[in-house]
Nucleic acid binder design. Structure first.
Lengths: 219, 219
DNA sequence: ATGTGTGAATTACTTCACAGCG
DNA sequence: CGCTGTGAAGTAATTCACACAT
């Protein structure tokens, strides 16, 4: 999915959920008010960054005071569309899919897994949290009946593209992809990718460099 | 962890593992040679981007031909430090931790989970793939004995910071954090973060906007 | 012909720095 | 005073476009 010019930069959109997350912790701690400085320290972002990001959406702070935690949190939630609960489906019920299906953190943050699917017949009927595993063949029906726009894909890489095709054909516009492959989608569909191995590899890069530096210093 | 000036940009480093992943699929498919154009189409990146990224590290292609898949893959692997296997520990053996411990995709890509830890005594001794769950109290010993530099954290948010502190105190320099919280670390430690809910929220943002546009068009 | 490698141009993102408000 | 909101300045990342090698 592309960004249209003059739109809010995607980097900013990706930070908003982090702000929301941190603000909800602050709210739980009973903190009433927070400055961009304080919030930034928690998140590892500069104060200016936070103020600039928020300024795309309005004026939420008070000069000399900072931001009211509940107020700002409410606004960010609404900006993200989280005043509604988003029904999603999960496809793929290997160990990872099962962990996702059981994780409480989705529902508490506005994401409701309303259906769980697998093509392995031996898994059909398995109970996972509030969901019962259904066959992939039921996907189109459920997607359309519930007007599902978001999906989580946790199938092996070889199956990911076909699953994504079915999802997209049936109206899904946002996909969280755990399979280690870049899936092809029409450009009105958003895809976000989780590849823990790739993230680890980006760190082995730096750790290897450190070795070299140390070796150099020994000369 | 900060980037020193003149260093390779972090965005570039983060793309390398994606290139490597795609190249290894190409190699499996028996493809010998690939152009930046073809590779870019697979990955969803421009050809110029790929050529520019690679140029930070050397000249790996042949004009008029493209890149030899095996050759380039070998180079990227080496750049990422993947000519060695990286031993890592996993802390936290809830459903997610168990899925991580059982996932084969780490070992096949140069990441070897050599120890799995939890503070829940009822889980100690549980067999997960090749690992047996050990108590958190054994962490320092194992980290030091094996000279562990990378760790995966899959504990609840409330425990993440204390676990990270122990890891860092015992020499860990790179952390893959699944807990939905930004952990504080000294600036010689790398942290990469996985928050599926935040990724979904960044998509609900765009999907909500689409609604509005449609509503506007109806006027 | 074809496709790399790369300076130059462009676009995007972040930080600065300060007016102005509570 | 303290801290926001924001143009302007400064960096960083991407894309262009073409010389050049095969």
């Amino acid at each position: 999915m592309d960004i249209s010019p003059n739109a809010i930069p995607d980097v900013v959109v990706r930070r908003l959920p982090i702000y929301a997350r941190s603000l909800s912790y602050l709210a739980e701690e009973g903190v009433r008010s927070v400055s961009s400085q304080e919030l930034g320290e928690r998140i590892g972002v500069t104060a200016a960054q936070i103020r600039k990001d928020l300024s795309y959406f309005g004026e939420f702070g008070k000069q000399g005071i900072g931001y009211n935690v509940e107020y700002l949190l409410g606004h960010i939630r609404r900006i993200l569309g989280l005043h509604e609960v988003w029904p999603v489906v999960l496809v793929g019920v290997g160990p990872l899919g099962q962990a996702i299906a059981r994780y409480e953190g989705f529902r508490t943050r506005g994401i409701d897994i309303i259906g769980v699917f697998d093509n392995d017949t031996s898994k059909i009927g398995l109970q996972l949290g509030r969901n019962t595993v259904q066959p992939d063949s039921d996907l189109p029906k459920i997607l359309q009946e519930h007007n599902i726009r978001l999906a989580i894909v946790a199938v092996p890489a070889v199956r990911a593209q076909e699953v994504v095709d079915v999802l997209v054909q049936n109206g899904v516009q946002g996909i969280l992809n755990y399979a280690p492959i870049v899936v092809q989608t029409p450009d009105n569909v958003w895809v976000r990718h989780i590849d823990p191995v790739a993230l680890l590899h980006s760190m082995t890069y730096y750790l290897s460099r450190e070795d070299e530096h140390h070796a150099m210093n020994e000369h």
